[in-house]
């Protein structure tokens, strides 16, 4: 039977990029954009993308029951890939929008970059936007074929902090060192946009479609 890869659609921005990039690297898998919690549960793999404000994101997930579907996918041991706000939503809490509880799949929280100074003493621009290096924190099948310190495309104003080191799959430096990728068991989540990160990003997505956690 053809494997189904669900891309969770919760009305938050651009799913086109993620699904097109997955289609580009899929071999015989069906990419299904869905907002139906049951279809998410039934899928063989799940991609949880996201852009925009975390408060709206969490509110929609709770209203639609997609939050429980995500917890069920995690518990069922199926591969789950969080992207950008999708990764942030998997942490315990975010300080965006005056503080909001998230899904708590990972401990740690999401904090504003704040007014940080760069190496030359100039103020760093926020959002952190552009191609930055990801230092791999551990060997992992998701990093197969991707060089350590390869560049990925980031665009975000909040970043993950206080994630236990054992869950950090990759680090990035922008004024501070933050978790650019987190993983545990069958879950892998990235702050950057693999669907916008040219060859390195496509390789990561291809790795996800093959990953057998």
């Amino acid at each position: 039977m053809t494997e189904v890869v669900a891309v969770i659609d919760y009305g938050m921005g651009n799913l086109h990029s993620a699904s097109k990039a997955l289609e580009k690297v899929a071999s015989g898998q069906t990419i299904l954009i869905t907002s139906d919690p049951d279809q998410v549960r039934a899928a063989d793999r799940v991609v949880f993308p996201g852009v925009g404000a975390i408060r709206d994101c969490i509110a929609v997930l709770r209203d639609t029951g997609l939050d429980q579907a995500i917890h069920d996918v995690v518990a069922a041991g199926k591969p789950l890939l969080g992207i950008c706000v999708g990764m942030q939503a998997l942490l315990a809490r975010s300080e965006e929008n005056n503080g909001i509880d998230c899904l708590g799949v990972f401990s740690g929280q999401v904090s504003f970059f704040g007014e940080m100074l760069g190496e030359t003493g100039n103020k760093l621009k926020v959002p952190h936007m552009g191609w930055n290096q990801v230092q791999q924190g551990m060997a992992h099948p998701m990093w197969a074929g991707i060089a350590d310190n390869a560049r990925f495309y980031f665009v975000h104003s909040y970043c993950a902090t206080d994630v236990p080191e054992s869950d950090v799959a990759g680090y990035c430096d922008y004024g501070r060192r933050f978790a650019a990728a987190v993983t545990r068991d069958n879950v892998f989540a990235v702050q950057f946009h693999p669907e916008k990160s040219a060859d390195a990003g496509l390789t990561l997505l291809e790795n996800f479609l093959r990953w057998q956690p």
Partner: peptide
Amino acid sequence: MGLAKRII
């Protein structure tokens, strides 16, 4: 090492 400048 860090954020690259972009060419567009």
